[in-house]
Design a protein around this nucleic acid. Structure first.
Length: 280
DNA sequence: CACCATGTTCCTTG
DNA sequence: CCAAGGAACATGGT
């Protein structure tokens, strides 16, 4: 489930597992995963290097690797259905494995699997240049955010999905943040009042912070599978599942604030959930 | 069978 | 130039 919080939790999970491990092999099972480069290019860049820090920008993971000749970087993106984890190299390769990197002696492998194939594990860092500020950036104070919104008449919910405006917000947390801020998702961005922009930015930070905290404290996300894979909501902890979203995917259910029915509309071609009473 | 899905990019139309 | 909508990518869940 990859929006910024899920990617950040995955980053924190992977970094200590990968730090210092040597890449003993590079197997590209789905060439599209390494686009626009090739498997050969990825192998040439990675073979024999060691994993360093794992960073994050928006929904992207930035894997730092050290080689004799200097530092290298690989960009990861989970798309809609990507997963990254370490598992024993022995046994059948996962059905949708896209990239497998045997580590050190070869007993363990780093795996990127991705059934729908929207994700990436690539030497091309170009997408980073298209990203707007991180939600917590100093430069993105309330005034800066307000000015960014003032420049467009698109629906505010659609603008929140624009990674060049603010990096990391996806379809779920866009609905959640607008609900917290009490702002209707179809409002033109340039018609938000300064106080509303301020409230919305605070709401974005809150929902993302809370989701990261939830993912960090939920051992079920990692401990469940024998491979230690990460996937929100798959661990069977109903209470965590229940707490997760206040409006997302809750069409017809009572609003947690006013009890009125939550509605679903399509904005930007995607499901958008909101309370017409609480959000104006 | 129909419809929906956490993302991104490209293309068309107005 | 902007905004909106759709298609595409490929698979799985309900």
């Amino acid at each position: 489930m990859p929006e910024l919080p899920e990617v950040e939790v995955l980053r924190r999970h992977l970094e200590p597992l990968l730090l210092g491990r040597r890449v003993a092999g590079v197997r590209v099972l789905r060439p599209k995963a390494v686009r626009p480069g090739t498997g050969e290019e990825l192998a040439a860049l990675l073979q024999g290097t060691r994993f360093g820090k794992v960073g994050r920008r928006g929904k992207y993971l930035v894997f730092e690797l050290s080689a004799r000749e200097g530092a290298r970087r690989v960009l990861g993106h989970l798309g809609m259905t990507g997963r990254m984890y370490l598992r024993a190299t022995s046994g059948p390769v996962p059905k949708h494995a896209a990239v497998v990197l045997p580590l050190d002696g070869g007993k363990e492998s780093f795996v990127f699997e991705d059934p729908r194939g929207f994700g990436r594990f690539s030497t091309d860092l170009g997408p980073l240049d298209e990203l707007g500020p991180e939600p917590w950036d100093r430069g993105l104070d309330a005034g800066g955010f307000g000015r960014a919104l003032a420049g467009t008449g698109r629906a505010i919910k659609v603008v929140l999905l624009d990674q060049s405006v603010i990096a990391g917000v996806g379809n779920i947390y866009a609905s959640e943040a607008l609900f917290r801020a009490g702002i209707a998702p179809a409002r033109p961005a340039n018609r938000l009042k300064p106080a509303e922009a301020t409230r919305l930015l605070a709401a974005i930070r809150t929902v993302l912070d809370e989701a990261i905290a939830l993912g960090t404290k939920a051992p079920l996300d990692f401990a469940g599978g024998e491979d230690g894979l990460f996937y929100y909501g798959s661990g069977g902890d109903a209470s965590v599942e229940m707490e997760r979203f206040r409006v997302y995917d809750r069409a017809g259910e009572p609003c947690p604030e006013c009890g009125g029915p939550i509605r679903r509309v399509a904005l930007g071609g995607r499901g958008t959930f909101w309370c017409p009473k609480c959000q104006r």
